[in-house]
Amino acid sequence: MSGLVLSLLDTVLDAAPALIFAAVGATLSERAGVVNVGVEGMMRAGAFAAAAAALVMPTPLGVVVGVAAGALVGALHGGLCIFARSDQVVSGMAINLVMLALGQFLLEAVFSSPSGTPPITQLPRWLGHSPLTWLAVVTPLVVHGLVERTAWGLRLRAVGEKPEAVAAMGVRVSRLRLGAVMASGALAGLGGAHLSTAVLDRFEHHMPAGLGFMAVAAMVFGRWTPLGAALAALFFAFGNALRLSLASSFPGLVEVVPQGVLLALPYALTLLVLTLQRPGLARAPAALGRPYDPELR
């Protein structure tokens, strides 16, 4: 039994960080009032850039490149939403599609291989896990502190609720929002980099295989708070890990309850919780999705 618990913990510690980084990042963007369904694309950018960079430089530096790539894609999303006043969901989906195609194209064009990059040196392991795993434990707390306890966090929350008020204080709404979306992209990029440098040792063509969408769901599930999002991400990762360990420890179980049903369970459960909670409880930021137009003030 303790063997089961330990293997479960191991799986969660390996799988959860990518989801936690991305989900916590998504809260930053959305709390500032910019919808971010482009997390999937930003993770993909981070995963690809980190692996590609790690081929020519030490892997930790590659991770930094991955973070920068995520931030860059975040800047693109922020630019489209804030300055071109695009529909934010549309812009996010556009980014997902471009990154999906660009990743495949670059794999084929640069590495002449449709399935993945050549292998890289994985990140070193501290206490049996990648340093990013331990960073993922701290990040939600740090972001929570930033959002809830600092002047920047106060402005960030205010700009997502009532941008006019923040503008009246003399703060540049556009700059604050762009910063938040870029930070969101950077964290998503970090999550992607974790996939390609710690979970695996290369970028694979399907990465991040929907994890970005799951991160967005975790953010909503966690009621737009960094700690809530991280817990929801942990829940998803735990659900998946439980399925894997149960299947390997009790092979008989799979014959009674099919794998696919277990696989569907976390998502069905999330849907159920969202359905059952009082509609007013999980309130999105008031100005979410609304471009700020200073001329309409």
Binding site: V37, G260, Y267, L271, T275
Partner: peptide
């Protein structure tokens, strides 16, 4: 009825479909 955003519910249902159809049925 419940104010669940369709983007979230359809993302969830996509996963449910993949799991049930391609991993079970």
């Amino acid at each position: 009825r419940r104010g669940v955003h369709e983007v979230i519910s359809t993302i969830m249902l996509n996963w449910v479909a993949v799991s049930l159809v391609e991993n079970w049925l």
